[in-house]
Amino acid sequence: MDAMTDTTAFDADPVEFYGTRVGSRLLLGTAQYPSPAILAEAIRGSGAEIVTVSLRRESGVAKPGQPLAGQSFWQLIRDLGVKVLPNTAGCKTVKEAVTTAEMARELFGTPWVKLEVIGEDDTLQPDVFGLVEAARILSRDGFQVFPYTTEDLIVAEKLLSAGCEVLMPWGAPIGSGRGLNNPYGLRSLRAHFPRVPLVVDAGLGLPSHAAAAMEMGYDAVLLNTAVAKAGDPVRMARAFARAIEAGRDAVIADPMEVRDMAAPSTPVMGRAVFGE
């Protein structure tokens, strides 16, 4: 697509996950907000269309088939009319993650799942081996998997061959607010998989981190703590939404190349260029 001449790109620039088009490139987590009212306002104010929800922590469901104990909370989220992306946060084994995903599909009636298989408690680093295995099982079972992974290229390849059509590499450890720890790795992931929707998930703290991810050509950004734990989550959500839009616009606008020498932005008239 020639973005320079496509005027619709400026106004409507949807991103597509598993055939579902969404207008907003900000995905928001729903945990740790001061109140559901503030969460709702943050979602509305930022225009986010996809929110992740943690089944294990919030639902209080012991077995599939039981009613959701956290119903009022889900109702508040449903009332916002957003798409729910259930996650398997806190799961540490393939089995746990698969069971949680199955529960989520039954409860939320969606094949989408953000797959987390956590390998280590201190960094909440993905267990990429378990992740690939769980992704294979779930994809075969009809799930549309959004894997939370590292920026490792080979892991990314394995996830794609396991059936994933979206990749969600981390920016930095969950909740750390450090931004993009490995810009080179993220860039090369983008370069290797130019047509796979890529979402930077976790570790961002500031809107500028999100803008940087978008400028690298990432398709979207997923956040939770940076917004939920801000002093004013509603304003922070809006700040991120704007930064993501700015970064995305910058990519479409085709930025200039970096050069070593100064290049005057005003034409220099009446002056000899050479031989001074």
């Binding site: 559901p36 919030e58 209080g60 012991a62 104990a69 956290g70 119903q71 909370f73």
Partner: peptide
């Protein structure tokens, strides 16, 4: 502080 209205059950976590 967990978003549900399930009484009584205390989890290991």
């Amino acid at each position: 502080s967990i978003e549900n209205d399930e009484r009584g059950r205390v989890t290991g976590r």
